[in-house]
Design a protein around this nucleic acid. Sequence first.
DNA 1: CATGAATGAGCCTTCATTCAT
DNA 2: TATGAATGAAGGCTCATTCAT
Lengths: 242, 242, 242, 242
Amino acid sequence: MNRSPRKEREWKEREARILEVARRLLMEHGYLGLKMDQIAAEMEYSKGTIYQHFSSKEDVIMELAAQTIEKRLELMARASEYKGRPRERIAALGVAVELFVRRFADYFRVEQIIRADSIREKAAQERQEKLTACELRCMGIVSGIVRDGIAAGDLTLPEFLTPEQLTFGMWSLSFGGSSIIVTGQLGELGVEEPFQAIINNIQMLLDGLNWKPLSYETDYPQTMERIAEEMFSDLLDDARTP
Amino acid sequence: MNRSPRKEREWKEREARILEVARRLLMEHGYLGLKMDQIAAEMEYSKGTIYQHFSSKEDVIMELAAQTIEKRLELMARASEYKGRPRERIAALGVAVELFVRRFADYFRVEQIIRADSIREKAAQERQEKLTACELRCMGIVSGIVRDGIAAGDLTLPEFLTPEQLTFGMWSLSFGGSSIIVTGQLGELGVEEPFQAIINNIQMLLDGLNWKPLSYETDYPQTMERIAEEMFSDLLDDARTP
Amino acid sequence: MNRSPRKEREWKEREARILEVARRLLMEHGYLGLKMDQIAAEMEYSKGTIYQHFSSKEDVIMELAAQTIEKRLELMARASEYKGRPRERIAALGVAVELFVRRFADYFRVEQIIRADSIREKAAQERQEKLTACELRCMGIVSGIVRDGIAAGDLTLPEFLTPEQLTFGMWSLSFGGSSIIVTGQLGELGVEEPFQAIINNIQMLLDGLNWKPLSYETDYPQTMERIAEEMFSDLLDDARTP
Amino acid sequence: MNRSPRKEREWKEREARILEVARRLLMEHGYLGLKMDQIAAEMEYSKGTIYQHFSSKEDVIMELAAQTIEKRLELMARASEYKGRPRERIAALGVAVELFVRRFADYFRVEQIIRADSIREKAAQERQEKLTACELRCMGIVSGIVRDGIAAGDLTLPEFLTPEQLTFGMWSLSFGGSSIIVTGQLGELGVEEPFQAIINNIQMLLDGLNWKPLSYETDYPQTMERIAEEMFSDLLDDARTP
DNA sequence: CATGAATGAGCCTTCATTCAT
DNA sequence: TATGAATGAAGGCTCATTCAT
């Protein structure tokens, strides 16, 4: 049946609110702590209403996962369009990923939880594939830029490292670092400014590959600052306060 | 109180078997899927018997975690005693960590699950601290070698990177990469030999920092081969078959 | 949140039924024999439904206890308002307490079980205090009448007996006697009409203290008959059939 | 098979210790809190050994009950042999009962718990009857003295009170009072010296029945003091410290 | 005899999901 | 369409009792 535009709008708003609440509960209490009852209670709607939007708890969680990767993909896609030399575009991706983790820490946490628990298995095939496809596109964006770098003559990979392997390296550094940060025990381990540390480590890695322009040949921090302001001004409000 | 040696031995063997089964179930079905009933069923023992060894489900999981980190720490400690130049000792650590993830993939998976889920919070304070203390020692081993490198004049860190931050970078690369590998969707993404890729990326990172001897100045692959054979011969049997 | 009046009524009725069933099971099988499963089965509702009314088994039992003492306090308070000389008002209390034990034998049994078992310790502090406060008020009613008797010149207590000690004596006789009756092995011991015996013993006790009017100066049985009919007509139906 | 005298003695000693431990646990933690495991642990014997003495948990508890009433009967029988006028012999019983509750509070508590819980039902028929028979003998002792009083011309019961009913009255006062004392909330209710209060209330009751010699005609406190010293000197050590 | 590991029925409690109103 | 009472399978844990050593 057709809904009036107003109804339709309200419907979507409610769906968004459900996911919001669910994401917070998932972060705060883990997979076990996410309870349909509690979502309903916090929304001040009834459980029945939640079930009108999502057919099961699994469904809620998979939608959360979908939101997450779409969010990240969106940011990465935006960054990849930066007009500049390939290594600068990698820097743009760095900006995007850092912003994603900082500004949407809860999204990232969701990804991590879902990755760890064997929820994927239970999820519908279709959803499953959607997630993998999305990851593929993320990798594609990065390795595309690596190839651009090679094509532009800025970078020559040693024979023992394929573009995918380099991409995998940067992804690992970024994902692993963010995981450790988000999980939280970092303070006690004496690592200052971990986000900046991730970026600096990646820069050193690219320097090691002799990807031009090298980190001391250009002012990357300034470039990234500019990228953040030009391309992601809408997300900057509180991201600076670590 | 006093058990005969035979009883004592049987007791320990059974405890080991419980943890084995638990680890497998944890891997296969995640935290939620680990059920005391099922452990008992698979062991062909009764629930009561399991509870004679571990006072709760949480207790089982924390013991699993303890095993994991002790295992890793043991391997890292062994590697750190390699007699060689600092960067070679880092390579030895690489060997250790790769062996850990490959040979004890299920241990690593446990670590990952525990890190993601909010199990830590529920765990007894004492266990908690033991885990953190262990992580601290792991980091200490690595950053100690970094400082040795600096002291030996082999490495000069740029001002924007502290030894802890570099350690964090290598840890991130290693942990993140292993996570992605173990979680499994890598085949479809076109990344070949991911373990080697992690090591190569780390080498490039250290080259980028100009840590002597650079990767093309020495035959690191051969060094690592030798380290593996000399220091970890007991673990090599099936580690080569990926 | 807001329930319709009908729903509200049904809810309360069901709650009452749960307590009814619980009280019966508690009487029949003791504290140990009270099983949530069985309550549900006898009600022909599911366990979950019981838990929507009471958060735990303990909660059910404490509510039962609360009902009991409120019931008794209510009857005693009613009796204490009898217009007559203090010793007649004591007689009115006797009527009330007998009615309580006879008409609400199951309530009394609950009190006894709760007093004996170490349930009180487990109960929430708040509930705890409520019970004690209620007992205090019961004692207060009685010792108040004792003091009235003294003030009216009807009674002079010997120096070795305070009003509280006399109250304690009557309470003991009444509670002890009722306990023995309710527990059941009395028939075989040759004690006829035990309820009347309790009252007569109390009368002799008060005669021993020379509390005017003495038992042979007034027709207390007739007075009590009248009190029962005037003040507790609503509870008389089956109380006569012992 | 025959046991050597030494073995036999050790066996009995162990049985006594089991019951001791069991009684303490029953008092401290109630029926639920009495666990065969814990008895064994505290005894530093194994569970199997306990089961060589008692065939079940029920058995342990019933033996505890048997000990209790035998203890009380023993004390009452001793007291009933006091050479004096009937009312003095009642006073001697008062001494006995008070001593029983004070000196063997844990025994009394056991009786109370067993009376409240529906353990009796589960107990073997034989045990059951033993308990009732014992109670009968206790009552018999008291009502025998009442009849002696009547026969001696010291007491004339009103027509509405049989010797058994009077006995029931004193039993109620004593049992009820002790119950309330042992359960513990008395301090807050302002009743001083509750044991003495029980005795004084009984004295007033007997005065009310005009049982000679009346309480003010003889120095009962002194008589009771003497009885305690002459007949129960073996139990007096700490009974005076309330 | 003593031991204590093994058993397993049984209990309390939780929570995703359904459906009558 | 919204509600929330009802459901009941499932899971963690306990503890009396047995029996091989």
